[in-house]
């Protein structure tokens, strides 16, 4: 099953979304294109600014690092040249984090897929020009070598390595962050599985608007959500 999604929870932001998976909840808000400060202005493209706020306390070096990673993904996702000399501002507020204390890099990697997915939904809601559809997935390798998609808190705590990967609808890798011990053969296996999972969430729906591709375990939740939203937006057109 996909995460819980709420579209446009914030009335005054240009685009917003909340995304709650089993581990994290993220509230994303997008404003743009807006006027940019002179020092951030780029002559040929829009500046992308990402602000991440943790569930408690104030942001520190960890949030700054997450911001750079998320901004790099979003910059390659947005058609920045369509709004030169402007700013696209993305604010991501983590509203729920696992109660258990994950250590070090695993903790940083685990939150990335939720951040990317929430940011993408908010950008889509705000109607900003996007090059591609993107989906991110979190994978954990158990000590037995078994790879788990969207692991539970317990699996995450006892795993050997965690991997956050994001693929777009053309199968290009946009994000690859890993933590823990693993070798290259293992990573390739993980990347394959991640690509399958990412493409499954945006797989085409069949005639009834439900699942196709029975081979994959996960539903195409991303496409379903965006399709439902687009159809709700033209309900007035059908009614008249």
């Amino acid at each position: 099953m996909g995460p819980d999604i709420l579209h446009h929870p914030l009335n005054r932001a240009d685009g917003s979304a909340t995304l709650s998976s089993n581990l994290y909840s993220v509230l994303a808000a997008v404003n743009g294109p807006v006027e940019v400060q002179r020092r951030d202005e780029l002559p040929e493209e829009a500046a992308v600014e990402v602000n991440i706020r943790p569930a408690s306390g104030v942001g520190g070096p960890r949030e700054r690092w997450l911001e750079t990673v998320v901004a790099a993904v979003l910059r390659s996702l947005l058609l920045v040249h369509m709004h030169p000399r402007t700013l696209i501002q993305i604010t991501l507020q983590i509203t729920k984090a696992p109660s258990l204390t994950l250590k070090g890099a695993a903790r940083d990697v685990a939150v990335l897929p939720s951040l990317i997915n929430a940011a993408f939904l908010a950008l889509a809601d705000g109607g900003l020009p996007l090059r591609n559809t993107v989906a991110a997935v979190l994978l954990a390798v158990a000590s037995t070598g078994e790879v788990r998609e969207e692991p539970s808190e317990k699996e995450l705590a006892g795993c050997k390595s965690v991997h956050g990967l994001a693929y777009d609808n053309h199968g290009d890798l946009l994000l690859s962050e890993s933590a823990g011990s693993f070798d290259l053969v293992e990573w390739e296996r993980i990347a394959d599985q991640a690509e399958k999972a990412c493409r499954a969430v945006m797989a085409p729906l069949n005639e009834d608007g439900v699942v196709t591709e029975g081979s994959t375990s996960s539903l195409p939740w991303l496409r379903q959500e965006l399709t439902d939203k687009a159809q709700a937006a033209i309900a007035w057109r059908e009614a008249t």
Binding site: H8, G15, G126, L128, K229, A232, I234
Partner: peptide, 16 residues
């Protein structure tokens, strides 16, 4: 799609 004007667009509800 507007066939008469040979125009096409995407209907989207949100955004600035």
């Amino acid at each position: 799609v507007d066939h008469r004007k040979a125009a096409l667009w995407l209907e989207h509800a949100g955004g600035r």
